[in-house]
């Protein structure tokens, strides 16, 4: 098993922060494209991309919404790059409790970049299309990935322990029972 490789297409948005002019066209089009119906409203607070900008420190950094996480990081780090200080959250794509970024402004539900997947598919995600200064470019690359090994039973035990610690044994068992029941149906 271990040596077998699979070829997978990875969609990639390349971010060249040096080219970013801070116009936020990416935010506007993202919000509009994901409106229902398409383009029927604009509200950058609904965008799945956000340009972190701090002109007086020459910081322009487009960040895409990634996975939702219910937990905050334990600590906060800062990075200094070329003399400019960035909060680590600047590079983080998560919709998380420590900030209001990448959440629907009304409901607070997390937002996540879907690469504008639509039928028929677009040549490029909309944010890339409107970024004619090429801070954002798009590519599809083939990558070889190793077949995932089956999860070890010890990992399962560790995971369950964490859940029990967080939600209590009763609650965890109830959910397990319900899942088992629906599986059988």
């Amino acid at each position: 098993m271990k040596d077998e490789k699979k070829v997978k297409i990875v969609k990639r948005i390349k971010i060249d922060a040096d080219q970013c002019n801070g116009c936020r066209a990416c935010e506007a089009i993202c919000a509009a494209f994901h409106a229902e119906p398409k383009y029927s409203s604009v509200n950058p607070a609904r965008a799945r991309i956000h340009v972190i900008h701090d002109p007086l420190r020459d910081i322009y950094l487009p960040v895409y919404a990634g996975e939702y996480t219910p937990a905050e990081c334990a600590g906060r780090n800062t990075y200094t790059l070329n003399g400019k200080e960035y909060d680590e959250c600047a590079f983080c794509r998560a919709s998380c409790p420590s900030r209001d970024l990448f959440k629907e402004p009304d409901s607070g539900l997390p937002l996540k970049c879907d690469m504008c997947e639509t039928d028929p598919p677009l040549e490029e995600p909309m944010c890339v299309q409107v970024c004619i200064d090429d801070a954002l470019t798009y590519e599809e690359v083939e990558v070889e990935v190793e077949e995932e090994e089956e999860a070890k039973i010890e990992d399962l035990e560790l995971g369950l322990e964490a859940l029990i610690k967080k939600y209590g044994l009763d609650e965890t068992m109830k959910i397990m029972a319900r899942m088992a029941a629906s599986e059988q149906e």
């Binding site: 509009a32 398409k38 383009y39 509200n43 607070a45």
Partner: peptide
Amino acid sequence: RGTKDLNIAKPAEFW
């Protein structure tokens, strides 16, 4: 600071 929607009458044509 604003986080509300701005609406467009004929979205596809406008875009």
